[in-house]
Simulated assay, not measured.
Amino acid sequence: MTRWRLLDTGAQPASFNMAIDEALFQLHVRGESQPTLRFYSWDPPAVSLGYFQKHSAIDFASCRELGIDIVRRLTGGRAVLHANDLTYSVVVDSGQGIPSSFEAVYRLLCQGLLEGFRLLGFEGEHGREEMECSSSDICFAHATVADIVYQGRKFVGNAQTWQGAALLQHGSIVLEPQEETWAAIVKTDSRESLRAQLKSRITSLREILGRGIDLDELKRAITTGLTERLQVEFEVGELSSQEWALAIEIASSRSRRREKHLSADQRK
């Protein structure tokens, strides 16, 4: 049975969360980091933008007022709100028991998540056709085969990037309702209309289970589900000194670029 490392890095700032995943991915591409499932959360809350996404609908001023950070991730897709969610990342390659097709990998990993949700007492299902919404920039307003829904409403979104045979997949599991926050940070002609649209398209584990969920309970269920579906063995581990050093370097580099851009904007 293939062994994967299980990491739980807790709550981190947005830039450092993305730097850790980038470090894991870079080192895995070089053959210097093992297959890894990582759980984490965000402090402060953040919006992550897809790698190629234009972000015109996100109101940066409102985000700043609410203490919500903005970060761009390596994976594709649309904006994801990381407030009252559990985020996971998977770093692996197609030579380690996963398919080489992006859609097949989405289905396989989602099957593992679905197994975990069954352990929590409910049946989710794969997303199907993309759902239309007036705000196309919000990931959770749309459900595709990469995602998981409950009774037609999405609560898990996923995104990928590949380099050669190596994969980085991000996933966000919504724990608490998010439509009020979204309505406060998206530019729209009608916040009430957007709020109603999102409520009809997005759900959360609290709404599904009728209770708040303990994060450790959720992580155990997901890990068990992925173990059964992927036929892998998870071993609890930590970031290596090499991974920490590279993550710090990446985060510092991004911070310097951001400060440079802010200074340039201020001189205009």
Rank of each mutant, 00 (worst) to 15 (best):
E132P: 12
Q96W: 03
R118K: 15
E132Q: 15
Q111E: 07
L109P: 05
V92L: 08
E130G: 05
L114F: 10
R128F: 14
L120V: 07
S89E: 11
R107S: 12
V105R: 01
E132A: 14
F102N: 09
S134V: 11
S135A: 15
L108T: 08
V92G: 01
V105Y: 03
E103H: 01
Q96R: 07
A104F: 03
Q96N: 02
S89N: 02
G124T: 13
M131F: 14
L114H: 08
L113V: 05
Y106M: 02
C133V: 13
C110M: 02
E123A: 10
S94Q: 05
C110Y: 01
F102L: 04
Q111V: 07
P99K: 01
A104E: 13
R118Y: 04
V92Q: 01
E130M: 15
E130D: 13
E129Y: 13
V90M: 12
G116R: 03
L108V: 06
S136A: 15
V92F: 02
S136R: 14
A104I: 04
C133H: 11
G116F: 01
G121A: 14
R128E: 15
G121Q: 12
E123S: 13
R107K: 13
C110S: 10
M131D: 07
L119E: 07
E129I: 13
S136L: 11
L114Y: 07
I98A: 03
E123T: 12
G116D: 02
E129L: 13
L119W: 05
L120M: 12
E125C: 10
S101P: 04
M131V: 14
C110H: 05
C110P: 00
S136C: 03
E125N: 11
L114S: 09
Y106N: 08
S100G: 11
S101A: 00
S89P: 05
S101W: 00
I98H: 04
I98C: 01
S134F: 04
L108C: 02
M131T: 15
V92Y: 07
G127C: 09
E130V: 15
L108D: 06
L108N: 05
L113C: 07
Y106G: 05
L114E: 05
R128V: 15
R107D: 09
G116K: 06
L113Y: 12
L113E: 05
S136T: 12
A104L: 03
M131I: 15
F122R: 11
Q111G: 14
F102I: 15
G121V: 07
F102H: 06
R128L: 13
I98S: 08
F102Q: 13
E103F: 01
I98P: 00
L108S: 03
F117P: 06
L114C: 04
L119V: 09
G121P: 09
F117K: 06
F122K: 09
